[in-house]
């Protein structure tokens, strides 16, 4: 069970990175990028193709991540910007980002064929022991990288002027431009970051899955569910949500039965959303917690 916990955390970090990408893009632009899962897929496919073409593993993976980031920027420019420019409150981006997702998936299938191929092994062969569990170094790497990225993101968001201005754009884009911020550049950057996060998730999960063009759907939906549980505009919360989802998945398999991972996480997600429709880490939950803390302090 402990092993399931640890592997669940590792898997959850992958979901969490995808979810974080969703959240960063949504936070700044108020758009859910339906092609987010496909960005992960692009990174996996490019890295696998580069590696099998003879590039060194690390370079191949960097190429994968870079392509994912570029694809993110492209998605914004082609599918989101024109829609928001005509009407800031329409839901047209739902259709256009979905269209981009379909195009990306099938172009990948055309280029690399619809069947799976191997991904360069990194650390999958080696494993470590934590307590009673046997965990591969790949999984440990996933956890370390995810939390490193989270820390970097939070530091950037709070300390650097570019992070602060992105938050300003998220809150009041018109006022942000009135202090000199170019909202278009910042929005594209948000999508680039989303692509980066998905790309990293891709190269982390690549070794344990086969590279095929249809990866985007599965990881996309898992990331999205994690996002919903956490709150659409909470990047840090999204990572935690992903980890939670991964743990629920694996533990359900172990504690209940091997089929439980198909339904148990959903039960939890539904319960969470019925209680906090905007997510566990949303503003309303936070102000409720603050209220509780205040009343406890008042009592004590």
């Amino acid at each position: 069970m402990f092993e399931a916990l640890v592997t669940g955390i590792a898997l959850g970090c992958i979901y969490g990175l995808v979810a974080m990408g969703f959240a960063v893009a949504f936070l700044v632009t108020r758009v859910i990028n339906f092609a987010q899962g496909q960005l992960l897929m692009i990174s996996v496919m490019v890295a696998a193709a580069a590696a099998s073409a003879g590039w060194p593993s690390v370079v191949a993976m960097l190429a994968g991540v870079a392509c994912a980031a570029a694809a993110g920027a492209l998605t914004y420019v082609v599918a989101v910007r024109p829609v928001l420019a005509s009407d800031r409150f329409s839901f047209g981006w739902l259709v256009t980002t979905l269209g981009v997702a379909v195009v990306m998936e099938n172009v990948a299938a055309i280029i690399w064929g619809p069947t799976s191929r191997a991904f360069p092994l990194m650390l999958n062969g080696t494993s470590a022991h934590i307590g009673s569990a046997t965990v591969s170094w790949q999984q440990i790497l996933a956890v370390l990288v995810a939390f490193a990225l989270l820390s970097a993101f939070e530091l950037f968001r709070r300390r650097s002027i570019y992070g602060k201005v992105s938050m300003a754009v998220a809150q009041d884009p018109e006022m942000a431009s009135a202090v000199g911020a170019n909202t278009m550049v910042i929005s594209v950057s948000a999508f680039v970051v989303a692509g980066l996060l998905a790309g990293v998730a891709g190269v982390l999960v690549g070794p344990i899955t086969y590279a095929n063009p249809y990866l985007g759907d599965t990881y996309g939906i898992d990331g999205f569910v994690a996002l919903m549980m956490a709150g659409a505009d909470q990047p840090a919360g999204a990572l935690v949500g992903g980890v939670l989802l991964g743990v629920l998945n694996n533990e359900a398999n172990v504690i209940i039965n091997s089929q439980a991972s198909a339904w148990f996480p959903f039960v939890v997600v539904v319960l969470v959303l019925l209680v906090c429709p905007r997510g566990l880490f949303s503003g309303e939950v936070r102000s409720w917690l603050r209220g509780v803390r205040r009343s406890l302090v008042g009592v004590g």
Binding site: I161, Q171, D172, A178
Partner: peptide, 27 residues
């Protein structure tokens, strides 16, 4: 530069951050 109606501060950020954001062009 403008001080708009209703102020429209970046309410989730600190006072100093709001000021630093005002100087974004001098970053």
């Amino acid at each position: 530069g403008i001080v708009p109606e209703g102020r429209r501060l970046f309410v989730d950020q600190t006072v100093e951050d709001n000021l630093l954001l005002g100087a974004f062009r001098f970053r």
